[in-house]
Write a protein that binds this DNA or RNA. Structure first.
Length: 588
RNA sequence: CGGAAUGUGGCGCAGCUUGGUAGCGCACCUGCUUUGGGAGCAGGGGGUCGGAGGUUCAAAUCCUCUCAUUCCGACCA
């Protein structure tokens, strides 16, 4: 039994000034966590109970799926990460340190290498596969900007699992197995989620999905269809291209004099104002123009190259989407001195005439999927003060390829069904993906197949942010009074509030109830503090967020307890004699 | 890494412009009263004002440097 009189807890009446998001604010105010370092939090007794409840559910679901738990050190030597090239690729996000002999170590940000090596160490036959192993471990990432309390820390707990299969079909089955296990886990945690297709990013590999809890304070942007079940991370959205247009007798392209039109808007205004250029049926819009943006790609080997992206003028380049396409290269700004080095580029009037590997600039020219064969555009004429109209793809220019780099707008058509997409934010609570053979290849994980031949093992990698899930759960269930935990997560089933004078019979009655509930198997938090006013106790109970609150007070004169549901606020007077049965009913 | 803000008892803040005994609310301790929605009265403990250097008879306050934190952006399995 938890007793408020002795619990290591101090609730705060006011919000801490450094906490912005609700979960962070309420977890600190309610005495669940305390900040110990930037991006690092101490779990206080109530918080630790909540954390362990989440961890237990995750573990039970992994075990139920037949996965086996192992546990690695967080402190690891450099070599395996050197071999997989992540000692370099992880960059500044890796916590690095040296031992007394000057050898390099790291605090693991994730454990693909170690799992791969462990399996290599023990297994050597296809008969041993498939294998699914996991751990629940503290991870370290030197985030440039930790924020939002537990949502993005530099030290956090993650459940990471790995699957090992002999072939792609096996990997697919392992992936599905994990997907199902994740669905069960998040359902049990009471977390709402959307499964979105995602990019695999720096991890390498192919198929990848994220579980996002749709919450506005989340850092991930995703789209979902208002009609069908399509959902995707914005990086992973594939634009639905329009049908190609027969070129036939489309108007010939024509260069027009457009002085003082360095921006899309000034250009559109000018051509709409000129009778000889006006569209016969409607006004021209920014979407009729083709904007050509030059970026600089920084490759991992240190070299740079230029890339031109052509996209409808009503859209900006979405850097995240672009980077996901060009990864592992990074995207940088094409500086004025870069322009100076390439005289074929006329700033403000760049067009397909100069772009492309075989044209004057020599810069690779990739276009948005909306730029289909037969589509006609108003775009730069590569001469100062001039644009070209009716420039038609497939007739007047041919780009080097297609790239998904334009920003996604709410209302864009769904790639599946064509209905409108909506944009939402979410917290990434889980990520599953098919790693493939990257790590197995790098670290030499092979097994003998039926024919006695060495085969490289294919892997899947699956993560749940356990400490982040605590915050996400807090984030999905709170109100202006405080937290509201799902029962299985809550630090207790019942929070008993005792009111009245110390000499009143309420104290002993509450003790008796608490003891009886414990015997019945319920977890009890008893506010037995003496001399604390009822208002303080009520407010603390609501702040702490135990799902069922029992008030032992005035009603006792009529032999009743008051039972309150934290979430709905509904109150019921229950006769003392029926209280245990009633509460068991409520809590089970 | 760019932009902005903030560092004063456990928490929230004032004081800084115009240098002169470090203050308020909450929390904490003692006593009495109070006890169904963050009680009252009285008394009390706790802070070298983020750090270093400088100016000055005198620095929380002015100057320089520095560190840290938070927010926005960039970055991020």
């Amino acid at each position: 039994m938890l007793r408020m009189s002795t619990l290591f807890l101090r609730t705060l009446r006011e919000d801490p000034s450094d906490a912005e998001v609700p979960s962070h604010r309420l977890l600190v105010r309610g005495g669940y966590i305390r900040r110990a370092a930037p991006g690092g939090y101490t779990w206080l007794p109530l918080g630790w109970i909540v954390y362990r409840n989440v961890e237990r559910i995750v573990r039970e679901e992994m075990d139920a799926a037949g996965f086996q738990e192992v546990h690695f050190p967080a402190l690891l030597p450099r070599e395996p990460y050197e071999t997989s090239n992540r000692w370099t690729e992880y960059g500044d996000n890796l916590f690095r340190l040296k031992d007394r002999r000057g050898n390099d170590f790291l605090l693991a940000p994730t454990h693909e290498e170690m799992f791969t090596l462990l399996v290599k160490d023990l297994y050597s036959s296809y008969k041993d596969l498939p294998l699914h192993i996991y751990q629940i471990q503290t991870k370290f990432r030197d985030e440039a900007r930790p924020r939002a309390g537990l949502l993005r820390g530099r030290e956090f707990v993650m459940k990471d699992s790995y699957s090992f299969d002999i072939d792609d079909e096996g990997l697919q089955r392992s992936y599905e197995l994990h997907r199902d296990a994740y669905i069960k886990t998040f359902d049990r945690l009471g977390l709402p989620y959307v499964i979105v297709s995602a990019m695999s990013g720096a991890m390498g590999g192919s198929a990848s999905e994220e579980f996002l809890a749709p919450i506005d304070v989340g850092e991930d942007t995703f789209v979902r269809c208002t009609n069908c079940d399509y959902a995707a991370n914005t990086e992973a959205v594939r634009v639905r291209p329009p049908d190609p247009i027969a070129i036939g007798d489309l108007p010939a392209s024509r260069v027009v004099d457009t002085p003082e039109t360095p921006t899309i808007q000034t250009l559109v205004d000018l051509i709409n104002a000129r009778s000889d250029l006006r569209h016969p049926d409607r006004d021209w819009t920014a979407a009729d123009t083709l904007k050509n943006v030059i970026v600089k790609l920084k490759h991992p080997d240190g070299t740079t190259s230029a890339l031109a992206v052509g996209l409808p003028g009503d859209r900006e380049v979405d850097l995240k989407r672009l980077e996901a396409q060009v990864s592992p290269a990074e995207v940088g700004v094409f500086e004025p001195e870069d322009f100076a080095k390439n005289p074929a580029l006329v700033k403000g009037y760049i067009g397909p005439g100069s772009l492309g590997e075989n044209n004057s600039s020599g810069i690779a020219f990739l276009v948005d999927p909306r730029v289909v064969e037969g589509s006609a555009w108003i775009t730069g004429a590569d001469t100062p003060g001039h644009h070209v109209m009716h420039l038609t793809m497939g007739r007047d220019f041919t780009p080097d390829g297609v790239i998904e780099a334009a920003e996604i707008h709410g209302g864009d058509p769904c790639p599946n069904c064509g209905a409108a997409l909506e944009i939402a934010r979410g917290i990434e609570i889980g990520h599953i993906f098919q790693l493939g053979r990257r790590y197995a290849n790098a670290l030499g994980l092979t097994v003998l197949d039926q024919n006695g031949k060495q085969q490289v093992v294919t892997m899947g990698s699956y993560g749940i942010g356990v400490s982040r899930a605590v915050a996400a759960i807090a984030e999905t269930g709170y109100d202006d009074k405080g937290l509201c935990w799902p029962r299985e997560i809550s630090p207790a089933d019942v929070h008993i509030v005792v009111t009245g004078k110390p000499t009143d019979p309420t104290g002993p009655a509450a003790e008796e109830l608490a003891a009886a509930l414990e015997v019945a198997g319920l977890r009890v938090l008893l506010d037995d503090r003496i001399g604390v006013s009822p208002g303080v106790k009520f407010n603390d109970a609501e702040l702490l967020g135990v799902p069922t609150i029992v008030v032992v007070g005035k009603g006792l004169a009529n032999a009743t307890f008051e039972v309150k549901d934290r979430k709905s606020g509904n109150r019921t007077d229950v006769p003392v004699g029926e209280a245990v049965a009633h509460l068991l009913d409520v809590c089970r």
